[in-house]
């Protein structure tokens, strides 16, 4: 099968390409960009005028629910959704059941993804055993099994000593640490941003300080331990500014944002719309605008789906009792493209 994709705007960040050009594919592999290879006769030709032609996207954070919660989704179902949304590589957090704290689970996920054949799935290994925040996970074994980084998922490491040692050890293994910054004490019991909407609706709040305090602590530890660290899905402009300052001071930290945080705010909860129950919570319009600005100026280096598929019942409950999370694989690219227009 020989395929030509003509007149599209070809974007290839790795090779620094961004121009209108023709692309030629032979047996599923790119054979040439610009001029057709000698003797190339296309079996099929696509006119991509006015369209983007780019490599498959990478989503830094998507829950696939397998193993453990197959009633919500499976690796096969979610990688299929990813492929439909233009995503060919997914990073899966370690908070599956069982937790990704041993090589067997890494193998299982890779195997299931290969079997399904829709997209590549990369695993993050656990930072602490069972994600309990008490003892270090076997990071060398996880790295050898193929984990590209370590993380404690959405579960906080509240013990600062454990966090310090975990970062030191991850640095020893040259593994990047993916951090979800949330102070567990300030966030406990909360389900919405502490502010105008949570007060009006009587929803237990999660203050902005739950995020900024965790970011402040982790930045100190990152600087001290020299670990390669990445902050996941920050929700407040104040926390993002702290990252920007740390980067300005020379700390090589990176940060991503969840696509829905660029479009929704606490106001979208309306009268208890549980679809808008997410963690970290949707914050103010000022935060949303600040996150967009930080994406535009490069402080935020990636947009991810933060895909969290659910069964129907998970959202059919009073707002605080509903499960947090939003499905985002198939809307990641369209939403990201729309940020350019904003």
């Amino acid at each position: 099968m020989r395929l030509s994709i003509l007149n599209g705007r070809v974007i290839d960040p790795v090779n620094g390409v961004d121009r209108v050009a023709d692309l030629f594919v032979v047996k599923g592999r790119i054979a040439a960009l610009g001029n057709a290879p000698e003797g190339f006769v296309a079996d099929r030709s696509i006119d991509a005028s006015g369209q983007l032609v780019c490599p498959g996207l990478v989503d830094l954070r998507a829950r696939l629910r397998e193993p453990g919660q197959e009633t919500k989704a499976t690796i096969a179902s979610e990688t299929r959704a990813a492929a439909a949304g233009g995503i060919t590589t997914l990073v899966s957090p370690p908070d599956t059941d069982p937790v990704v704290d041993n090589p067997a689970v890494v193998d299982l996920i890779r195997h299931r993804a290969a079997q399904a054949g829709f997209a590549r799935v990369l695993s993050l290994g656990a930072l602490t055993q069972g994600l309990t925040g008490k003892t270090l996970a076997e990071m060398y074994a996880l790295k050898t099994a193929g984990c590209i980084g370590v993380s404690n998922g959405d579960r906080a490491v509240s013990n600062t000593e454990v966090m310090r040692r975990a970062m030191e050890y991850a640095a020893t293994q040259s593994l990047p640490v993916f951090l979800r910054a949330e102070d567990p004490w300030l966030a406990e019991g909360g389900c919405a941003h502490e502010g105008a909407v949570s007060v009006r609706l009587g929803l237990p709040g999660i203050p902005e300080a739950a995020e900024t305090i965790a970011v402040a602590r982790d930045l100190q530890l990152i600087e001290q331990t020299g670990v390669h660290a990445h902050f996941c899905g920050l929700s407040s402009v104040r926390a993002v500014k702290m990252i920007a300052r740390a980067r300005f001071d020379g700390l090589p930290v990176t940060v991503d944002v969840s696509a829905h945080q660029l479009f929704l705010t606490e106001m979208d909860i309306g009268y208890f719309d549980s679809q808008c129950h997410v963690r970290p919570p949707l914050r103010t319009q000022r935060d949303r605008d600040g996150l967009r600005q930080a994406l535009a100026d490069g402080t935020i280096s990636a947009v991810c789906s933060d895909h969290q598929p659910h069964d129907v019942d998970a959202k059919l409950a009073p707002f605080p009792a509903s499960e947090p999370g939003i499905s985002g694989l198939e809307t990641l690219l369209p939403l990201t493209l729309r940020t350019k227009a904003c």
Binding site: L201, Y271, P318
Partner: peptide, 14 residues
């Protein structure tokens, strides 16, 4: 009467 905020709205919706 329910212990969760929004319970009455949820019921009214359904």
């Amino acid at each position: 009467r329910h212990g969760d905020s929004g319970a009455a709205h949820l019921i009214a919706q359904h």
